[in-house]
Design a protein around this nucleic acid. Sequence first.
DNA 1: TTGTAAGCGTTATCAT
DNA 2: ATGATAACGCTTACAA
Lengths: 325, 325
Amino acid sequence: MVTIRDVARQAGVSPATVSRVVNGLVGCSEGTRLRVEHAVADLGYETNSLARGLKTRQTSMIGVLAPWVSDALASDVMSGVENAAREQGYAVMYGRTGLESAYAAPYLRTLRTYRASGVVLISSVIKPEFRQVLGTSIPMISVAITDRSGAPSISVDDEQAGYDAARHLLRLGHRRIGLLAGRPESVFVNGPRVAGYRRAMQEAGCAPNVVHGDFTYASGGPGLRALLGRDPGLTAVFAVSDEMGVAVVNELQRLGRRVPDDVSVLGFDDTPSSQHVYPPLSTVAQPLREMGELAVRKLLRGRELGSKILPHRVVERGSTGPVPP
Amino acid sequence: MVTIRDVARQAGVSPATVSRVVNGLVGCSEGTRLRVEHAVADLGYETNSLARGLKTRQTSMIGVLAPWVSDALASDVMSGVENAAREQGYAVMYGRTGLESAYAAPYLRTLRTYRASGVVLISSVIKPEFRQVLGTSIPMISVAITDRSGAPSISVDDEQAGYDAARHLLRLGHRRIGLLAGRPESVFVNGPRVAGYRRAMQEAGCAPNVVHGDFTYASGGPGLRALLGRDPGLTAVFAVSDEMGVAVVNELQRLGRRVPDDVSVLGFDDTPSSQHVYPPLSTVAQPLREMGELAVRKLLRGRELGSKILPHRVVERGSTGPVPP
DNA sequence: TTGTAAGCGTTATCAT
DNA sequence: ATGATAACGCTTACAA
């Protein structure tokens, strides 16, 4: 391993000077800078992140915690995180928190022992215990979830999104609209969307019809059947995740109903999976990648974090249409 | 930040002793061990991974490189990696390499500057330049790709899998079987599967019909149409990824053909997406999670790495059936 | 502009 | 069984 002293010797300067050059600090004459750079290239020197981090009490790592790896939503956000991180020369450490954030604490501890620069939480709220485990010196922000506690977060307005989704369907003439919600325990992401749906339905004088799934594909089929059990004549379904939406489309077709001719289906998130059905799923898009990028930018900016609401929009694809006559 | 010296003072011992206790080394009396453990708990001491890593020249981090984040295959492997890593107290650093591994080198460099314990490459082969960038002291292994170069890897027998897939279809009576391959440049994963398919077709005296996609959903529809263009009467399609397989099912239905009554479809990988169509996709399963787990276990075992072939199997779901009369 | 030197928090070696 | 002490490779006052 070639160290800073090796470079210093080779360039005929002190280690301090090498450090200055490597870190692009002010105050080094053109001549020595060149000599040092030459020596660095020559020897193939790379600064030891561990030593640097130990000294500066900070590493260029940002942590990302998500409930599941195979989650399309998390993948999209992570992709944004990675972009922004790489751009700024940061590495990303990744961890899965599992249902109910069971593994979050050990992971945050690890991040702390490595003196990470910041942490982004995907679709989970910043619980007080998280803050406690991570300590006060590492900033943390949550993404893609409505956090009303005042903790830093980036999300869409889930209530308004739920409202807009229902409105979209209502405007197409539907009145018997079923809502396939997420797990009731996921109150932060689920609650506002359900509330928005209810508000729109009430305004329109329509009776709400709500059933709970768990955001996954597997829960979509049974969810639809439950919805149908309560209202066999429904003409539209709003599912609060694309996975459930896709499942609903498939199940509908299996039951011999045409989409969207007999029943319209609207999803949520605009993950790639929404386009992996035929007809492709209409959905409420969140700018997930952008959210991920913004999260690390905020984290690295250094100022007070604050929260940000990004715009959602309903994107019309093939799975929604006018109410059947 | 509470350091090892604080603990030492509190427990009335030397830092060296604290270190011994914390690391569970031999040679400490029961009494002092208890006192130290008490002090640790009391003060909430946590070892600084940076300092430890600097001293030991090694950190408990394993790196994972995958072409894309949103890739279901990579997600499955990563999930196995994470399991095994957490089990052994290792953290996971994650990086996306992009098409043609464009970003691999910087990422490997980072891993090196952090003195990672090992690196797993998902569906990409260990190029000599990777080895060069990473240095010789950090072990590296590739997963889910056939690497014939002798470099350590974990995979299924892709040639045999391609053969078995075609045989499966042949046994159902199909003779006009189209192959939707991956990008021809992905010679390592793609080549063997194509070769296996060709071998089976030749043995059966059937004419091969091969078209290239790029593993993604988007390439599935056009791929099917190309296959149909060459043989409008084909009765089965073998797609070398589930995403393409799902796309083929959807496109077939869009064209008014029933699956599997008119055309059978067989995918590859057995990722969750294979069950997100109706009928669910029959597919050639690779034990992806297990591969990920095995990869880190091998990496951490410390001995010579070697390669391992894990068994594949074709799983029969709803998208394959007997040839139509 | 550059060098000297003192740590950062550990672990490992060598005594005791 | 335990304690001094010297690194590990870097950054950063402070001096020059």
